[in-house]
Simulated scan of single mutants.
Amino acid sequence: MYGPITTSRKPSMQATGVTPHDLGLGDAVRKEPYADGALKLLETITLATDAMCVQFNRDASILAVGLANGTIQIYSADDYRHLYSLSDSDVQKSRLPATTLRFSQTENTLTATYASGLIKFWHITNGQTLHTINEGEKRQTLASAFNNDASSFISAGSDSKIVQYDGKTKQVKNVLQATDSRDVMNGHRMRIFALQYHPDDPHVFVSGGWDDTVHFWDDRTTHSVRKLYGPHICGDALDIDPIHNHILSGSWRKNNVLQVKALLQGD
Rank of each mutant, 00 (worst) to 15 (best):
M1A: 12
G3Y: 12
I5C: 08
T7N: 11
P11L: 06
P11K: 03
G17S: 14
V18I: 14
T19Y: 00
T19L: 01
P20D: 09
G26L: 09
D27K: 14
A28S: 14
V29N: 02
V29A: 03
R30N: 03
A35G: 05
A35T: 03
G37E: 05
L39Y: 11
L42A: 07
E43F: 01
T44Q: 13
T44C: 12
T46L: 09
A48Q: 12
D50L: 10
A51G: 15
V54C: 07
Q55V: 02
N57C: 05
N57T: 04
A60L: 04
I62P: 02
L63Y: 14
L63A: 11
V65W: 07
G66P: 07
N69Q: 15
A77V: 06
Y80W: 09
Y80M: 09
R81S: 12
H82R: 15
Y84K: 12
L86T: 05
Q92N: 13
T99P: 01
T100D: 13
R102D: 04
F103I: 07
T106C: 01
N108H: 12
N108T: 13
Y114F: 15
S116N: 15
I119Y: 03
H123P: 00
T125H: 11
G127A: 02
H131C: 02
H131Q: 09
N134S: 12
K138P: 06
T141V: 15
L142K: 06
A143P: 11
S144T: 14
S144N: 10
N148D: 08
D149K: 04
S151W: 06
F153Q: 13
A156V: 05
D159R: 06
D159W: 04
K161T: 14
I162E: 02
G167R: 08
K168H: 08
Q171G: 14
K173F: 03
N174F: 08
L176D: 01
Q177M: 11
A178E: 10
D180A: 08
D183E: 14
M185L: 15
M190G: 00
A194R: 05
Q196E: 13
Y197R: 13
Y197N: 13
H203L: 13
W210P: 00
D211F: 01
H215D: 05
W217V: 10
H223Q: 05
V225Y: 05
R226V: 01
R226I: 02
K227T: 00
L228P: 00
P231G: 01
P231T: 00
D236T: 06
A237Y: 12
P242Y: 06
H244V: 05
N245T: 11
H246P: 00
S249G: 11
G250F: 12
G250Q: 11
S251N: 08
N255C: 01
L258R: 12
A262D: 08
L264Q: 10
Q265M: 03
G266T: 13
